[in-house]
Write a protein that binds this DNA or RNA. Sequence first.
DNA 1: GTAAAATGTTCTTATTAAGAACTAAAAGGA
DNA 2: TCCTTTTAGTTCTTAATAAGAACATTTTAC
Lengths: 140, 140
Amino acid sequence: MMLKLATNIKYYRKQYNWTQQQLANELAISRSVIAKWENGDVLPDLMALIKLSRLFNQTVDHLLGINSQTDQLLNDFQQFYQTNSENEPVIDENLLNTIDYLVKNPLLKEQIERLSHLSIKQQKAVQRILQTTLNEAERL
Amino acid sequence: MMLKLATNIKYYRKQYNWTQQQLANELAISRSVIAKWENGDVLPDLMALIKLSRLFNQTVDHLLGINSQTDQLLNDFQQFYQTNSENEPVIDENLLNTIDYLVKNPLLKEQIERLSHLSIKQQKAVQRILQTTLNEAERL
DNA sequence: GTAAAATGTTCTTATTAAGAACTAAAAGGA
DNA sequence: TCCTTTTAGTTCTTAATAAGAACATTTTAC
């Protein structure tokens, strides 16, 4: 698994114009450990990682260089909030309405969750059935 | 430092209806380790944690239960929501994931929009069919 | 109530990160 | 340039701790 952690630690330390010693002091650990983190020789333990994320004001995910789905989505949200009118945001009015609908229909929300846990093939099958059902219903 | 990691691992494992053994298999580790994680006896190492976040579709920050941007945004969204509608919707982490899923599945999003425009009676009928379909799919 | 499954616990082993001390490389000043 | 000081990299040892196996307990299903 490719982690950007080492690079990021070094990067953010320098952003703050800290020496390894200064960072080590902040974390109350020995300096050589920082060196090893930054060179990818060793991974910090969880607690140290969390402290780092606080110090650097970054999410753990970002420090690790993981671009999780949720993070991606959050970015979209943020964009939506910040730029209300520019490029068409991923989160549009329609989606907001859909979310609203989901919020008011916990059962449906749960069903979609369940759907998302199926295999891709099964998901598609279910969606085909849903499509047919909707077509039927709309004809009435 | 107070971590909600143990609780969260157990919670999301159960969300997926997995036994400790099944989760252990997914991660290719021994089951007793899962038990210890869930009881807070031991912290998973970084790589295991990342795998968990992938499996559960959650940010590492959220799994850890540390005050992350995600949680912050959730609050914002909650506020945004409450000021824009009369009901008090419950926006939780799962909803975020569901939204994410919708964003990635435009067809499904459209289907839900269509569903929302049907009469209540029809909506219920469609949902019953969906329920049955999901039950079927999950049995396989 | 019993059998099977799922979970919790203990003990040992193995992994690996931390720290100290040493080495090497930059940075700064005469 | 040479010297000094600061900063960073490396090695070796020690200590911490997570993983696994085996066993114990609890829960679930019949």
